[in-house]
Design a protein around this nucleic acid. Structure first.
Lengths: 209, 209
DNA sequence: TTTAAATATATACTCAGTACATGTTTTGCT
DNA sequence: AGCAAAACATGTACTGAGTATATATTTAAA
């Protein structure tokens, strides 16, 4: 909690808007909530909403930065004897073991995903985030192996992120079918292991495997 | 060319609008052309534009269906002794050998890609198309191997499409650096081979590899 | 306490996309 | 040929996100 009055007020207002928006989004679906309604619900001016959230989607995705930083840090700060692909795999296992909020396969996260799937705008934003993360991952891969960013780095990043998102989707699917978080976790990790195994094979002979 | 007068007129009008739009898009960038300008350039009413192209992006991406059909057909109509992943790999080689228009790495396609990269809207549409194709590919994979669509099919599709788009991007990068179409082709196929090798490893023991 | 920077908010705009109504052309039927 | 229905072109009026800009108010800092 920052001591600065201005900053505290600013964050409080941001949070108030985000809360109002989230409430409305889950109740009625992202596409059926207007910025005007959010402003009214949060009792602020319309322009204030844009002031804090340049895009409507920004009110929905709030923890993206955390997930991104986790991934990039895991690649950058891995032990030298661990390959990047293996570091990625271990990160997935660690996140599940630690019950990190954004890979917790619970009723809450299923609702989250359902809201995304129901909205083209949210799906588009999710894809954009993933693409940008793929690029950043390629850069991090090259950087931590002392290479210039090359085709190998980009293919590795692309395959890893494809693996991640497939595993994530699969875990949520398992959750919806079985209602069992443990089973969802297991299917997530199984696909992570399967995908990374493939990536290692593709990257054999490079510093990434 | 359909003999039907109505259909011919309709297609002609559609083409006229598409041509006008394309001209403007390449000249000024997708985001800096309004629907009104396109309508005026094609000398039709604004609503007519929407009549033929529900979304602005539809005027830009015109050959997507062709690319999609090629991929799905290659998977569906492969010889029984060829695995789906191998069929994918062979398709890529065949398209290059046949100089298929949408995988021709020429100055024209570089300009095309530059226009896409300059526009968030076009990038978003490209991602959407790719995601949808991934889903259709998973379904086709399951179908042609007589499986129910499962996690293996989805992981395979996801890794294959990731491979494709990375290879495509890499080829264009090579083209821009070297100006050499042959070099671009070579880098495309090298990445396709590398990626599919990884997918085969990941899918060993399944009917997809 | 005065000044400067941040912040909240109003007004007025742009542009894609939708809803709906109305002509106009083509077709298929008699 | 002549007519009714379908398909198509197009106008008007709207919604809703996002931008530009101006202004007022609050907080920080001197």
């Amino acid at each position: 909690m920052p001591s600065d009055l201005r900053t505290r007020k600013r964050l409080a207002m941001r949070q108030a808007i985000s809360n109002a928006a989230t409430r409305l989004f889950f109740a009625r679906g992202f596409d059926h909530v207007t910025i005007d309604e959010i402003a009214k619900e949060a009792d602020v001016g319309r322009m204030t909403v844009f002031n804090h959230f340049p895009r409507k989607e920004d009110m929905f995705f709030d923890r993206d930065d955390e997930a991104r930083d986790n991934l990039l840090n895991a690649l950058r700060q891995r032990a030298p004897e661990i390959s990047p692909v293996e570091a990625f795999r271990l990160l997935a296992h660690r996140l599940i073991a630690d019950k990190a909020p954004y890979v917790e396969f619970s009723a809450r996260s299923a609702e989250f995903m359902n809201t995304i799937v129901a909205s083209e705008a949210l799906k588009a934003r999710a894809r954009q985030t993933r693409d940008e993360l793929t690029g950043q991952t390629a850069a991090a891969l090259a950087e931590t192996t002392g290479q210039a960013e090359d085709a190998n780095a980009r293919l590795t990043a692309s395959l890893l992120l494809a693996t991640w998102s497939t595993a994530y989707a699969e875990a949520l699917r398992t959750l919806q079918h079985t209602g069992d978080t443990k089973a969802a976790n297991a299917s997530f990790l199984a696909l992570i292991d399967q995908g990374t195994l493939g990536v290692k094979a593709a990257m054999a002979g490079t510093p990434y495997a």
